[in-house]
Design a protein around this nucleic acid. Structure first.
Lengths: 186, 186
DNA sequence: CCCAGCCGTTCCGTTTACGGAACGGCAACG
DNA sequence: CGTTGCCGTTCCGTAAACGGAACGGCTGGG
């Protein structure tokens, strides 16, 4: 590095490690080999390999060639949902992905993370609010406080949240899930 | 359509000229000089100058340093404001909100819009892929082509998408919904 | 068993993005 | 006028991102 400045680490926001992991995940999800993706994207295997392992700081052109071939926007491999509002609770972290309103109701779509070994009780919402949860990973126990249900990866739960309700991760794995809140128009 | 990944993209995403113009616009909008921004962002004036004039292919690190100093997410200079990756089909528009991978499977969360008066048939996915749809508004008829189900606002449908499947909006109202695709790890 | 083919990583020479410094242009001031 | 100060651009040596090729590992076939 130029100048006699102490090496500054920037592990957080746009670190090459996270970008590399996302690219590798997208590639493997499509069942494509590194060699093939490198060839079809028009970049060197050395480049793609180093990039996926976070050993390089790619140029925009390289990143674009790869994400274009993967069929995702460039932003998809950069740091996650940027500057989105997040709610933190005892056991649950919720990130708002999108909100939506139509004539009958308004909706809020959240990304949920539930930490293991803790439970979170939420007070009742206004009457008529429903919650829909789809579990990505882990085992989730959630629902009305007096009658929660359990769902594993791929499962779906829904309930009317006009009574107090709970969230808990069973086992010692963090639960990832999506949550859709539906607020009927009053 | 859910079979086809987003393949279209706006060409401006990685156009160094457009990126440079957006950075220059953001900088001037804040009334800060090129020299000052370069110093506070910790990049060379030569770099910033060349970048703004579209003469270089910046690295991720450089872009991040500059956008962080400008106080905007990196994605803000890659494409126009509020652009999201979108797949268009005959009847369905899908916007990727988030993708997620864990040890067992990977997930893609989409925002769906289904136009009334049309129907869309999607080919089978690889074996084991499941789709979860939660309807925001309108009435959706969707599922395996030989046995689709119907859901109204607040309802939820899910099916295994290793056979051809259909999407259609019943009535004359557009359907808004969320779609979660789950790809088991092979 | 060997060999062919593909995998992802490593090696290495070339290209190029990088920042410090030098430059010309412009405005303010004595 | 010269001088000073900041502007954005250009020059240039260095560090590093790049792709081609070579490499070792694994798998399937003869």
């Amino acid at each position: 590095m130029t100048g006699a400045r102490p090496e500054q680490r920037r592990p957080s926001d746009a670190d090459p490690d996270a970008v590399g992991r996302r690219i590798r995940a997208l590639r493997e999800q499509r069942g494509v080999s590194l060699s093939t993706l490198a060839r079809t994207a028009g970049v060197g295997k050395a480049t793609l390999s180093a990039l996926e392992n976070g050993l390089r700081n790619p140029t925009l052109e390289t990143l674009y060639a790869i994400t274009a071939q993967l069929g995702v926007p460039l932003a998809a491999v950069l740091s996650g949902p940027a500057t989105t509002p997040t709610v933190q609770g005892a056991a649950v972290t919720a990130t708002l992905l999108e909100s939506f309103t139509d004539t009958d109701a308004s909706y809020e779509l959240y990304r949920l993370r539930v930490r293991p070994g803790a439970q979170q009780l939420s007070p009742a919402h206004q009457s008529g609010v429903t919650e829909h949860v789809t579990v990505f990973s882990g085992v989730l126990r959630a629902g009305p406080a007096d009658a929660p249900s359990t769902a594993a990866a791929g499962g779906h739960l829904s309930w009317t949240s006009d009574v107090p309700h709970v969230y808990a991760a069973l086992g010692d794995e963090e639960v990832a899930a999506s949550l859709l809140l539906r607020y009927p128009r009053r």
